[in-house]
């Protein structure tokens, strides 16, 4: 089971993706496509194998627990006392109409919300058993352990592909061969290596939208976080790029705990183990994704997923 994790405040180096934490070997026969390995095309298989090789075996992930969380913009209460547990190594999707507080809630998890002038949050957010809102917590360390991917791909515009991914690890003292290795590994893990290996020095913004988003995911995982928050990561991408990112999400949950905010209900249905439906700053229903989309318990969930109100 899970190793006891060192607390956020004492951690100086990188968080551990210690191979000894591995709980199981990845199953070579199961690739999520439901097909036997022999049925995969050579190209598919090599890209997938490359990504798989770049990742360590399954790592026992970390849970995030949100307890009675309230978030405000000035006097407006956007999140009204939410409690959710995000289990380790699972993808949890947050769905709900615009303005229901789902992005705000997610941004409270890695303390991004408080960066907005006038915004504040109350309540508990626990990374395993560590309160990320405790007084002696280093906010930067929290954000390193809880990475975030945004709606629009946002590579650093002046930086090369390599430097975009290297920027995080550099800050934590990685350099030379160690740094290069980490960047290459991250690019392989997001399936971008083959597409960019010959132009690592070109600007990151020269990539296509889908590639840029995968670059941003590579940048996020380069600092080896424990949790990845994704706020509408595919809404600016075309369908093929979207499916690539979704496939990546499925693979990343082997090592990370993933929370994804999405407006695309089919995306939630495709990638999430469990789904949370939010409305007006509250959680209406939280259950296995299959249940939410075949037999929701709450009438409001039913109306939302069937498109009876927009």
């Amino acid at each position: 089971m899970m190793e006891p994790r060192p607390s956020v405040k004492r951690r100086n180096g990188m968080s551990g993706t210690d191979p000894e934490q591995s709980t199981s070997e990845p199953d070579a026969g199961i690739d999520g496509s439901g097909r036997e390995p022999s049925e995969r095309t050579a190209e598919e298989s090599s890209a997938r194998d490359e990504r798989a090789a770049a990742r360590p075996a399954r790592v026992a992930g970390h849970s995030v627990t949100v307890g009675d969380l309230h978030a405000y913009y000035g006097a407006t209460e956007a999140v009204k006392g939410i409690s959710i547990k995000f289990p380790p190594n699972e993808v949890t999707a947050i769905i709900g109409p615009s303005g229901c507080g789902k992005s705000t809630m997610v941004r409270c998890i890695n303390r991004m919300h408080e960066e907005i002038p006038g915004a504040r949050a109350e309540g508990k957010v626990l990374l395993d058993d560590q309160d990320v809102y405790a007084a002696d917590i280093d906010v930067t360390a929290v954000r390193r352990l809880i990475g975030m991917v945004f709606q629009k791909p946002n590579p650093f515009p002046t930086m090369s592909i390599f430097d975009n991914v290297a920027s995080g690890p550099k800050l934590t003292g990685n350099k030379g061969e160690n740094l290069r290795e980490r960047v290459h590994k991250s690019l392989r893990a997001v399936g971008l290596w083959g597409e960019v290996k010959n132009r690592l020095d070109s600007p990151g913004i020269g990539l296509s939208g889908g590639q840029q988003q995968r670059l941003c995911i590579a940048r996020t995982i380069a600092v080896e976080p424990e949790v990845i928050l994704m706020d509408e990561p595919c809404s600016a991408l075309d369908p093929v790029a979207t499916l690539k990112v979704e496939e990546l999400i499925e693979e990343l949950k082997e090592q990370y705990t993933i929370v994804i905010v999405t407006h695309n209900l089919q995306q939630a249905a495709r990638v999430a183990d469990s789904t949370v439906f939010m409305l007006d700053g509250e959680v209406v229903e939280h259950g296995p994704t299959k249940e939410i989309f075949t037999n929701p318990k709450d009438e409001r969930t039913e109306r939302y997923v069937t498109g009876k109100f927009g």
């Binding site: 037999n295 929701p296 997923v305 069937t306």
Partner: peptide, 9 residues
């Protein structure tokens, strides 16, 4: 139309 929930049933 990808029906879901009660519609799907």
């Amino acid at each position: 139309q990808t029906p879901v929930a009660t519609d799907l049933r």
